[in-house]
């Protein structure tokens, strides 16, 4: 599992840079193309896609996770 998801609570309008800074994440540990995704912006909950080792390191220490990021496939035609 090369990459995992983590979630973090940040002030509304937070940026990827502020999330990385708050969690102590390096750029090569984060999928910066994916960015910072608002899961529940009103509640201040955001998601990042990070390396599995980074997910294990920060999960439970400022962030929740690591959460699985499994492949998804179309359900058809049936094979």
């Amino acid at each position: 599992m090369a990459r995992v998801l983590i979630t973090v609570r940040l002030p509304e309008g937070a940026s990827l840079e502020s999330a990385m800074s708050a969690l102590g994440l390096e750029e090569d540990e984060v999928d910066t193309g994916y960015g910072l995704v608002p899961v529940d912006p009103g509640g201040g909950l955001y998601a990042l896609r990070v390396s599995e080792s980074a997910g294990r390191r920060v999960g439970g220490d400022g962030a929740a996770g690591p959460h699985a990021d499994p492949p998804i496939e179309p359900f058809g035609p049936p094979r």
């Binding site: 990459r3 990021d69 499994p70 492949p71 179309p74």
Partner: peptide, 9 residues
Amino acid sequence: DGLLSDALA
């Protein structure tokens, strides 16, 4: 296929 993170975004 895609990844669940894409669906999340």
